[in-house]
């Protein structure tokens, strides 16, 4: 099978030229990854008794240039701690972080990064434009370019009409957009976004998704944390699921989409199907074999099982009414990893 991947400003490249199913052309893949995290561990001390609280433990992953990597997890799973460590806001106990080829503590790397916190809060008494000018100074943007940069960022997030208003009068969604504007000011190579869709209405979410897609197409690497699975599914190339500070899954979304199960609907009730000697694993999709009436819903985990099941139905004289492929959605996987709580690799719990 030949897959082709479109990367803006670059010709179509065959899948063979891609590394391990990644949407990175060879030219980009030859570069070091945009982000590499190895064995990241952080424990916090809390309360008078200095009780130990695990932030993250042994987290390792890497993000190639131009990729979108999503960190998924419940509240308190360790997403924000991981992001804090990347930006040197939180000091890890152990581990190594490389950002754009530099150590994460190197300030030069931070000039090439844009960051949006989970709940952006800025100075209430500055206007939107003043705030972005302030960040331009912190990014050492040349003064002659400052106005254009600020206007560009405001336009990109649709905040131009409100640029002259004080931030204290902004809604949560407007602050989120302005937060995104300040993250884009330095024309970053790597964007780190903590819950970028939080606080946005459906329209705003769609606009931000479109903007992130544009940035991705322009070659910007994006690391985002979220618990809104459909947004992640639409944007991300790879996903890491954190549970209680541990990375329980680190998988490419392409590989997840390839993992497919099937539902087979056969004439006759489940009891009849059971008596016909169908494999026991096939009966797991239809409920109670004694009570179920009507057509039998049978399950096959992969194409090999599907073949065996169809043969068994044929041999038992059960007419097959329908075969329905069922993709393992990211949401299913997310819920499964949290129910099982075990380390999962390759998309299989």
């Amino acid at each position: 099978m030949t897959r082709q991947v479109l990367v803006e400003n670059e010709p179509l490249v065959p899948a063979a030229a891609l590394i391990a199913g990644s949407a990175i052309p060879v030219s980009r893949a030859a570069q070091p990854p945009a982000l590499r995290v190895a064995d990241l561990t952080k424990t916090f001390r809390s309360g008078f008794a200095r009780r130990r609280l695990r932030g993250v433990e042994g987290v390792s992953f890497s993000v190639g240039r131009g990729e979108v990597f999503a960190l998924l997890g419940h509240n308190g799973a360790g997403k924000t701690t991981t992001i804090g460590c990347l930006l040197d806001l939180v000091r890890p106990d152990r581990g190594e972080i490389t950002l754009l080829g530099c150590d994460h503590r190197d300030r030069r790397a931070r000039a090439r990064i844009g960051y949006l916190p989970e709940r952006p809060y800025f100075f209430d008494y500055l206007t939107g434009r003043e705030l972005l000018e302030f960040y331009c100074d912190l990014l050492d943007v040349p003064r002659r370019e400052r106005r254009d940069r600020v206007d560009g960022a405001l336009r990109r997030v649709g905040m131009m009409p409100d640029a002259g208003r004080r931030l204290g009068k902004y809604s949560k969604g407007m602050l989120q957009r302005l937060g995104l504007a300040q993250a884009l000011l330095g024309e970053p190579e790597l964007l780190i976004l903590d819950e970028p869709m939080s606080g946005l209405d459906p329209m705003g979410r769609r606009e931000v998704r479109t903007l992130l897609q544009e940035l991705k197409n322009q070659g910007c690497t994006i690391v985002l944390s979220s618990h809104i699975v459909p947004d992640v599914e639409q944007l991300a190339d790879a996903v890491g699921i954190l549970r209680e500070g541990r990375l329980v899954l680190n998988e490419r979304l392409g590989a997840l989409a390839d993992a497919c199960a099937y539902r087979v609907r056969a004439a006759g009730c489940l009891g009849e199907a059971a008596r016909c000697g169908l494999p026991p694993w096939a009966l797991s999709g239809g409920g109670d074999t004694a009570a179920a009436q009507g057509p039998a819903d049978l399950a096959a985990a992969d194409t090999q099982q599907l073949r065996e099941l169809l043969d068994a139905c044929h041999a038992a004289g059960l007419p097959v009414l329908a075969v329905e492929p069922r993709r393992t959605g990211l949401e299913d996987l997310f819920l499964r990893t949290h129910e099982h709580g075990t380390v999962v690799h390759g998309g299989k719990a």
């Binding site: 806001l89 300030r107 030069r108 916190p117 952006p120 800025f122 960040y135 912190l138 937060g179 780190i192």
Partner: peptide, 12 residues
């Protein structure tokens, strides 16, 4: 409030 994180995430 987290304002400091957006400042220190810049080369400051």
């Amino acid at each position: 409030k987290g304002t400091i994180t957006t400042i220190l995430a810049k080369p400051v």
